[in-house]
């Protein structure tokens, strides 16, 4: 079983390359059992969305 340190690295690499089926399976299993890493995965998605907003010159900010 992968530990959290490896899982966080792999979650990040998922944005850089296609993970193998085996890696994706390991991530899913780990995330089901580990609230910290499951949150981490969600937080990375959030970071990615935030960067997208900033890149497009965020338009929806209330002044």
């Amino acid at each position: 079983m992968m530990n959290c340190k490896e899982v966080t690295r792999l979650l990040s690499e998922g944005y850089e390359r296609n993970l193998t089926l085996r890696e994706r399976l390991a991530l899913t299993l780990h995330r089901m059992a580990c609230i910290g890493c499951n949150n981490y995965g969600k937080h990375l998605e959030f970071l990615h969305k935030a960067a997208n907003r900033l890149r497009e010159g965020r338009d929806d900010v209330t002044p």
């Binding site: 530990n3 959290c4 981490y40 929806d60 900010v61 209330t62």
Partner: peptide, 30 residues
């Protein structure tokens, strides 16, 4: 952030963020 076996230290374990995307409309967040 991790213990010897590579698992989160309790105090560093990522917390649950409630409705994070609501922050996008707040200029303080940016």
């Amino acid at each position: 952030l991790f213990d010897r076996r590579g698992f989160w230290n309790p105090e560093d374990r990522p917390a649950t963020w409630s409705d994070p995307e609501a922050s996008f409309s707040q200029k303080e967040f940016w």
